[in-house]
Amino acid sequence: MSPYHHGERIAQERAGLLDNADFSSAAIGAAIPDIARDFLAEQPLIIIGGTDANGDVWASQLTGETGFISATSPTSVDIAALPTPGDPLHEPLTHATHLGMLAMEPTTRRRMRMNGTARPTPGGLHVTLDQVYANCPKYIQKREPTRRPTIPAAPRHSHELSTEQITFLTEADTFFIATTDLEGNADASHRGGNPGFLHTLSPTRLRWPDYVGNAMFNTLGNIQVNPHAGLLVPDWTTGTLLQLTGTATVDWDPQHADAVPGAQRIVEFTIHHIVQTDQASPLSWSTPQYSRFNPPPPQPIEGATA
């Protein structure tokens, strides 16, 4: 049986990459490779994605000391951390729910995606896995982490980006995106590029180029059947987290993509709700070494706010 759902197959066909996707599908399994167990145990950070009670999709992150992520069996993972009470995924994770996860190590540019069902445990989560696979190192900026004491500020909610948030997004080189299929199966993925690759079109609209990837089209395939999506944009220096939920659409017009360096397609995102938490993360990361795969940043789009 194919590991891809209907939306993913639609996206693969529209991109003309069905054969490439079939080749890549061999990497998708339900068990954690032995070598990946050590990788998970070394991580201080994991990105998560899921859906709240209103059907909104959110991306967030969990952090901990080395070993807070552990592969308790080939098909399950324990995470000794939970979202803080002000996080949009705090309440959904108080009961069994679909969860997408991305373990990414900027120091080595390695990443690993895991999707499954999370159940709460005392002080953490137990996740039964459905899908496990590694991703290529493209578009990951190299960074080194340090840990420092921090107390997260109270989350601030809004429905439009402030001037400061627009400036922050304009300078971003990395964000994470959570999506789900029609059954709620969640996925968390990474997007990276040189500063300027993420455009703010207005206080409620964003746009970014979709670069060459692994041809699986997990994110775009989910958007084909369920436009709800969540973005997490970290401030790697201060630990501030900007979480956005809204709806995404894919522009498949090749002429529009041709106008943006490296773009295969263009993704637009309409913001419905914003949560900003200052000093949310105890991790501070070094100045980035940009990926050699990053295309040049696109020129500002006519009519964009930033």
Rank of each mutant, 00 (worst) to 15 (best):
D187H: 03
Q224M: 15
A215S: 15
T270I: 07
P85G: 07
P74W: 06
L283G: 01
N194K: 12
F175H: 11
I48Y: 01
K138Y: 11
F168L: 04
A21W: 08
P298Q: 06
P288D: 07
F168R: 04
L283Q: 01
M114Q: 02
P122H: 04
Q264C: 08
G184F: 10
N54H: 13
W285G: 03
D258R: 15
Y290G: 12
L102N: 00
I47Y: 00
P234C: 07
H273R: 14
T179E: 00
V267L: 10
H5P: 05
D235L: 09
R113S: 13
S158I: 08
M112N: 02
G16K: 08
P297F: 01
G49I: 07
F176D: 01
P152H: 15
P92S: 08
L82F: 08
D251Q: 04
S284V: 02
H272Q: 15
S70P: 10
D56R: 14
E65W: 09
N115P: 00
I28R: 03
I35Y: 11
L161N: 11
F197N: 12
P261K: 07
Q43K: 13
T247W: 02
D173K: 05
D78G: 08
P88W: 05
D210W: 11
F23C: 06
S2V: 02
T84C: 00
G124E: 03
R113W: 12
L182M: 05
N226R: 12
L232W: 04
V127S: 03
I69D: 00
I271S: 06
E268H: 14
A96V: 14
T146H: 13
N218V: 13
T180W: 01
N218G: 09
A259L: 12
T305P: 00
S60G: 14
T97N: 07
E144V: 09
I223P: 01
P227N: 07
T117L: 14
I48N: 02
A280F: 02
L201W: 15
A186Y: 06
P145V: 10
L198K: 13
I223N: 00
T170P: 00
T66G: 01
I223F: 02
W285P: 00
S291V: 13
I301K: 09
Q264T: 10
I79R: 01
A229Q: 05
D235F: 07
A30T: 12
T72F: 00
R14D: 05
F175L: 08
G230C: 05
D235A: 13
N185T: 09
A15S: 11
A248Q: 08
A27D: 03
E171S: 12
S60V: 05
P195E: 09
V267S: 03
L89T: 08
A186W: 05
D173E: 12
I274K: 04
P149D: 11
H159E: 13
F68C: 10
T277W: 03
P149A: 06
P137C: 03
A306C: 09
I46S: 02
P261G: 09
Y211R: 10
F168N: 03
T238C: 08
G196D: 10
I32W: 05
H228I: 03
E91N: 07
S162A: 12
S73A: 15
L241T: 12
S189E: 09
R119V: 15
T150V: 09
T51A: 06
